[in-house]
């Protein structure tokens, strides 16, 4: 497989979309931009938010209190924490930071019933942005993403086309991070290219 064009870490292994994303490029006046966030760290954190010690201990490690409002996320420069359920969060970190974070959380939560599971490889994140990003999402997702109800800081889990996804909005461009299971990534990537075709698609690294 010729992927010399990809600026990879040494021996970083295979990412789900490596085979599909070889050469960046596409329409100059594109309506949507797509990229894969390769190998970003992903942990599933479970614990009881009504337990003060759980909240305090996780805050110490993350630098902020876990989001308790359903379908929102919070972030700082290192970690993005997405609410997934009343006792479940996704903690997204930079590539390579997941093992130490996993360790730190486990140590901080030694005396608290919890679980931290590394799922960095279980799924990947496709970043979709651009003026027509919302229109593309609306083609395959029944959740309302209108700016009156969905904005930066908001997140949801639902289906996009035939893939189950976790999605969160980063900014007003708008930019959406779409987390999808590894084996559905190439399907979803092709679907996004097809759905975005009428607006013009630019692929970024």
């Amino acid at each position: 497989m010729d992927d010399a064009a990809l600026p990879k870490q040494k021996d970083s292994g295979t990412s789900p979309l490596d085979k599909l994303i070889k050469v960046p490029g596409g329409a100059k006046d594109a309506g949507i931009f797509l990229k894969e966030c390769r190998h970003s760290g992903k942990l599933i954190l479970r614990g009881d938010p009504s337990d003060d010690l759980f909240i305090k201990s996780t805050s110490k490690v993350l630098g902020y209190k876990l989001p308790l409002t359903p379908n929102t996320f919070l972030k700082n420069s290192e970690y993005t924490s997405v609410w997934l359920g009343p006792n479940e969060w996704l903690v997204n970190s930079l590539p390579g930071d997941d093992s130490s974070l996993e360790n730190d959380l486990n140590i901080a939560l030694t005396d608290v019933h919890h679980s931290v599971t590394n799922v960095s490889d279980n799924s990947t994140i496709i970043q979709l942005s651009g003026p027509n990003a919302r229109s593309v999402i609306m083609k395959g997702c029944a959740v309302d993403v209108h700016p009156r109800v969905f904005n930066p800081g908001d997140a949801f889990q639902s289906n996009l086309a035939a893939a189950s996804v976790i999605m969160w909005q980063l900014n007003l461009i708008p930019t959406f991070n779409i987390m999808v299971r590894a084996s559905f990534a190439s399907y979803l990537w092709k679907w996004l290219l097809d759905a975005g075709a009428e607006f013009g698609v630019q692929i970024r690294l």
Binding site: P70, V143, F156, S158, N159
Partner: peptide, 11 residues
């Protein structure tokens, strides 16, 4: 009760 209104396809 947590996520609000969703299509029944999600359930």
């Amino acid at each position: 009760p947590w996520c609000g209104y969703r299509d029944d396809a999600e359930f």
